[in-house]
Structure formats: C-alpha cells, structure tokens
C-alpha cells in the first residue's frame, strides 16, 4: 500500500470509499433504521463508537491473533464490546437506551466493522486504524443521515420531528416503511454516483486524457 497521510486515512472512508454509498456495505441498518433522522444519527454514532474501539483493539493485538482464527476473534471482540456497551448504556442512561434499544444489538452484525478490521486494522498500526475507523464511521453516519433526511422529510413531512413541509403536504407513508428504504437507497445512490461520474469526466476533460479503463468500474 502506498504511503498515505493521516488525512487520507480519515477521508477515504468518509467519501471516496464510503461504506454505504460506494461499497454498499451495512445495508441492514441502512434500510432498517433510516426512517427518522434521529434514528440515523443515533445508529451512526453508536456504530462509529464500536467501529473505532474494535479496530483499535484489533490493530493493537494483530500480532497475537493467528490468521487461522482471526474471524472468530474479531467477531468475539465486536460482540463483547457491543454487549458491554448495551449493558452500560442501560445502566447509566435508561433514556438513551430506550431510544437506541432495538438498534444496539444490530451493530454486532454490521459488516462494515468486520470489513474494516479485515481490510485495514489487521494490517496497520493502531493510529492509522483508528483514523480509518473514524472515517468509515463518519461516512456511514453521513450516508444514514442522507437517507433519513429524504425518508423523514417525505414520509412524515418533518426533520428531527420539526415540521418542514407545507401544511398541504400529504406525507408519503411508504417512505416510512421498508419499501421506502429501498426506494430511497436507490435514489441516493443514483444521485451520488451521477455526481461522482460527472466529476470524474470533468477531471479527465481537464487533464485531456480520455481514460476509458475506469469508466467500466
């Protein structure tokens, strides 16, 4: 891997390799909990927290974990961390736990976490792993937030519970339900990929080098 700056380590996950918008990972929470903006932010931040801590742990112990049992060890780390966090949140702040309750357990099976551990944390020093995890976590949160804005805005006419649509607006009930998740994901991906493609075309035009190899990707 070529040398990268801490900035690149962080920004990679935020946009260029955004876990949801580019890698289409973590679809379960992306579809399931994005019907309100508050849910999105809570889920995004909770996942970021688990992501950072578990990636730091994996990067720290990577030499002691044999390759053969690494998946088991990674999943054990994630599951333990999530369960302990679940208990602590319930013990310390029942209100937060009430709001997050059903989502916390979902974090265990979020494949973004395992993917970052496998692809990055297990091969890189602790500091870089932490930055990479933080970037991916923010990228995940941003993607969920985009989904939440569209779904809550159209599905309930509100953002964070505050009415934003005119009174005459008839909420699209379907956006709150599972099909709304699929529709919104498709719309968001379409917009993001179109923007990215235009940007790439402009860059190529500016460089005067029509590269067609990347076009297919």
């Amino acid at each position: 891997m070529s040398a990268t700056t801490p900035r690149q380590d962080f920004l990679r996950g935020v946009w260029r390799e955004n876990p949801v918008l580019v890698q289409t990972l973590g679809m379960c929470p992306t579809l399931a909990v994005t019907n309100t903006v508050a849910n999105c932010v809570a889920m995004g931040l909770a996942t970021t927290l688990v992501l950072v801590f578990s990636c730091v742990l994996v990067a720290w112990w990577k030499k002691r974990i044999p390759n053969e049992v690494r998946i088991t060890a990674f999943v054990l780390i994630i599951a333990t961390f999530v369960t302990v966090a679940d208990m602590l949140i319930e013990g310390l702040s029942p209100t937060v736990h009430r709001a997050l309750g059903p989502f916390i357990a979902l974090i265990v099976v979020n494949c973004i976490i395992l993917a970052r551990q496998e692809a990055f944390a297990a091969k890189n020093p602790v500091g870089r792993a932490a930055l990479d995890a933080l970037g991916s976590g923010f990228g995940f949160t941003i993607a969920l937030f985009l989904m939440g804005v569209v779904r809550e805005g159209l599905g309930a006419g509100t953002l964070l519970g505050v009415r934003v649509m005119p009174a005459a607006f008839q909420p699209w009930g379907v956006m709150m339900m599972p099909p709304g998740g699929f529709l919104t994901l498709a719309m968001v991906l379409l917009v993001v990929r179109t923007l990215e493609r235009r940007k790439a075309e402009r860059r190529r035009a500016a460089a005067g080098a029509p590269g067609s190899a990347k076009e297919a990707a």
Partner: peptide, 27 residues
C-alpha cells in the same frame, strides 16, 4: 489457536460478567 480463542473467550466472559453485575442493580 486454543490459547488465543480460549483466553479471548475467558476475557470476554469476564468483561461481560463484570458489566452485568455492575449494571444489574441500577437497571
């Protein structure tokens, strides 16, 4: 392999039990 998984499992179990005991009363 056994030591890593066994040790990891034991540490994880210990952490869970500690967290459980520490939070059961407030919950």
């Amino acid at each position: 392999l056994l030591a890593v998984l066994g040790g990891g499992g034991a540490v994880a179990g210990l952490l869970l039990v500690v967290a459980y005991l520490a939070t059961i009363e407030p919950i």
